[in-house]
Computed example of a mutant assay.
Amino acid sequence: MSAAYATAARETVTLSAGRSRDKDLRSLVFLGALWFSLLFGILVLLVLILTTAVKGAPRFDMALLTDYSSQLFPERTGFRAGILGSVWVMLATAALAVPLGIAAALHLEEFADGQKWWNRFIEVNLQNLAAVPSIVYGLLAVAFVELVGIRERGLVISGAIALALLILPVIIITTREAVRAVPREIREGSLALGATQWQTTWRQTLPAAVPGIATGTILGLSRAIGEAAPLLMIGTATAIRFDPNGLMSQFTALPLQIYSSTSQSQEALQVAASAAIIVLLVMILALNGLAIYIRNKFQRTW
């Protein structure tokens, strides 16, 4: 009997450690294929990044960041308008999407009745909306701005609406997961001390879920900053030579300027576009790094 218990204990330890005795040829071939796919994808990505960086190396200068685009002097063309336009539209997108997404997630997770058919319908559609192509959100934004009476095309507010619609499902889903990870005992303890459900949510659940919410929100914004299709649908121009100064100002975005420069036949513009791709990649990696820092700095273990 003791031998049987010892064998069962060893098997339990093996399974919990992720090891298995099943090492036949098929499992080894499958494992090798998985590792090969992973390494191949990473290798291709590194080659693309290095090739782009080498091509754009002659244009890693301040003019790339401080000058405007120029067809007459392509060797001095810059992406100042695109960088500032991306910053403006990202700030407006965050102002629109973050409060609405967090509020919707808190309502669905803490207050809504999950047995009602309309709440189940909303939850199913949220999962589907997260996988909808970005150009569809551009079409939806066009219809929305026409509905509210905005006739001028290519405005900062229009771009913010398109990108806010794009990342709103992501923010709602990640916020719900962060709120769901808060232990139930915290809610029950607060309610037992006489707090209302709203006070419990506002003072206990939401602060405990902030690291997960911030991480998901920043990752959603890092996705939006590289999108070009929704901005094209709302009529965003690419040859803007001024800085945006408000929500009702016209703007261009860095991905759109990169697309426009790579489609030109002039070699100098393509070199500048390669350098701008690295700038955009650095911006995205900085946002992802900020998300990782917030998660590691403020996450709690329950």
Score class of each variant (00 low, 15 high):
102 I>Q: 13
43 L>K: 08
297 K>V: 01
201 T>E: 05
273 A>T: 08
294 I>E: 00
263 S>I: 14
210 V>F: 00
280 L>D: 04
3 A>M: 12
158 S>H: 05
283 M>Q: 13
7 T>A: 11
178 A>L: 01
140 L>Q: 09
50 L>D: 03
64 L>F: 00
275 A>G: 09
120 R>V: 14
264 Q>E: 05
285 L>D: 14
108 L>S: 01
159 G>Q: 01
107 H>A: 04
67 D>M: 01
277 I>L: 01
227 E>I: 00
84 L>M: 01
55 K>H: 04
21 R>G: 15
46 L>V: 07
302 W>D: 11
301 T>F: 02
92 A>E: 06
97 A>M: 14
214 A>I: 02
45 L>M: 15
6 A>Y: 02
175 T>Q: 13
34 L>F: 02
60 F>L: 10
184 R>C: 06
157 I>W: 14
157 I>F: 14
287 L>D: 05
298 F>W: 12
91 L>M: 12
282 V>I: 10
272 A>G: 01
288 N>G: 04
143 A>E: 07
201 T>S: 15
70 S>K: 09
50 L>H: 07
1 M>L: 04
127 Q>T: 07
54 V>I: 15
160 A>D: 12
299 Q>R: 03
144 F>D: 12
275 A>H: 07
219 L>V: 02
51 T>L: 13
44 V>R: 15
264 Q>D: 05
13 V>L: 08
292 I>D: 05
33 A>N: 02
58 P>R: 03
291 A>F: 12
176 R>L: 05
20 S>E: 09
234 I>R: 05
121 F>T: 15
153 R>T: 11
283 M>H: 05
149 G>S: 03
15 L>S: 15
24 D>T: 03
187 R>G: 12
32 G>Y: 13
181 A>C: 09
65 L>I: 07
256 L>H: 11
189 G>V: 14
12 T>H: 14
28 L>T: 09
195 A>P: 10
37 S>I: 06
132 V>M: 05
126 L>P: 01
125 N>Q: 01
40 F>Q: 04
165 L>R: 14
66 T>N: 12
5 Y>R: 09
9 A>M: 05
227 E>R: 00
96 L>C: 10
246 G>S: 07
230 P>S: 03
148 V>N: 13
86 S>Q: 01
14 T>N: 13
182 V>F: 07
103 A>V: 08
4 A>G: 11
20 S>L: 08
40 F>L: 08
257 Q>W: 00
99 P>W: 02
124 V>C: 10
157 I>N: 11
231 L>I: 10
195 A>V: 06
21 R>M: 09
102 I>A: 07
216 G>Y: 06
